[in-house]
Write a protein that binds this DNA or RNA. Structure first.
Length: 327
DNA sequence: AAGAATCCCAACCGCAAGTTG
DNA sequence: GCAACTTGCGGTTGGGATTCT
């Protein structure tokens, strides 16, 4: 399988197309069809390589191309298809008449991906992210929140409750980081860093003394066995199973509250339940596999998602809720 | 008003699958 | 079966447009 030398040829024009070139290409294809892309430039009187002509035609000049902003429905379609297909832009484009794979790819990279990241979702897995950097915006928001609370001494119970909630949320995020790190470390027999984890957990007050001793005795790749009674096979990381919609609502609540210089009220909704976990009631661990430890955004992760045997774990209601946020 | 920073997208690049002789 | 060639795909980038300071 050799490679086409078409773009290596010297003297061929590159860069933006002029309207004159566009006209030549359009006229030729309308009269003769594109035929062989390699032969087309000469026949059409263009000083371009065939590849460039094909790209210009398929991404820009084709008469059935729909231009303009993506509609909310199209956004939703892209998100849903991407959660199943991954970065298979051409496959996604087939479901969006008039849109090119390039356009969808650009739209994803410039808009949708950023939105997902901002909202704390891994754009490749479409799951709530659990790595440290994903938690960073939330932790920063929490830090700001704390500052706000401290600047304005609590004149009612909501302030102190809020602060306690914020601390608890930060602890949960930290616990997730530790669990991920622990699983990664556990696969490396030479590492002794795992021994520090119980100390960390104790310091942030997330584990009871009995849980602490259970963790302290762990020394093999099956170290996580015993945490909530679930096994953690080497190379698989448990995620703290946060009720998805609650998680989302709560995350938004924190961010909104911070942005608005907040009057976050001590509500008793589901979001509240999330944060009012007692120190002995760690959330249950989910048991879905993470195939590429420590690199949830990698291509291989994407490919795994793209593989139809591993579908996202979002519930329909969560997805609907999420999508309505976008609209 | 002007320079800097950021956003956005058209176009390019390189790889790989498919086709042809 | 093999090599040359064609086409399609996904990742990346250059630079114009827009926004911010």
């Amino acid at each position: 399988m050799g490679r086409s030398p078409c773009c290596d040829e010297n003297g061929l024009k590159k860069g933006p197309w002029t309207s004159e070139e566009d006209q030549k290409l359009t006229d030729y294809i309308e009269k003769h069809g594109h035929g062989s892309w390699r032969a087309l430039p000469k026949l059409a009187g263009l000083n371009r390589c065939g590849k460039s002509c094909r790209l210009r035609w398929t991404n820009y000049l084709r008469p059935d191309i729909k231009r303009g902003k993506f509609t909310p429905e199209e956004e939703q379609t892209i998100l849903q298809l991407h959660s199943v297909l991954g970065n298979k832009w051409s496959a996604i484009a087939k479901h969006l008449p008039g849109r090119t794979d390039n356009e969808i790819k650009n739209f994803w990279n410039t808009h949708l991906k950023k939105k997902l990241i901002q909202m704390g979702f891994d754009p490749m897995t479409h799951r709530p992210r659990t790595d440290f950097f994903a938690a960073l915006p939330q932790l920063i928001a929490l830090a700001n929140l704390r500052q706000l609370v401290e600047q304005r001494p609590c004149d009612d119970q909501s302030g102190s409750q809020l602060q306690a909630n914020a601390v608890q949320a930060a602890k949960l995020e930290y616990l997730q980081c530790l669990l991920q790190s622990a699983a990664a470390i556990a696969t490396s027999p030479s590492s002794s860093s795992i021994n520090t984890m119980p100390t960390d957990l104790e310091q942030i007050g997330l584990l009871s003394p009995s849980q602490m001793s259970s963790l302290s005795s762990m020394s093999s790749p099956r170290i996580m066995e015993g945490v909530n009674g679930q096994d953690l096979v080497s190379g698989q990381v448990p995620d703290i199973q946060i009720p998805s919609s609650s998680f989302f609502e709560h995350e938004q609540a924190i961010i909104n509250c911070t942005n608005k210089n907040s009057d976050y009220s001590a509500n008793s909704g589901e979001g509240e339940k999330l944060l009012l976990l007692s120190e002995d009631s760690l959330p249950p661990l989910a048991d879905f596999p993470i195939c590429n430890l420590g690199d949830a955004c990698s291509t291989s992760s994407c490919e795994a998602v793209g593989n139809s045997t591993q579908l996202p774990i979002w519930s329909d209601s969560f997805y609907d809720e999420f999508m309505s946020e976008f609209a």
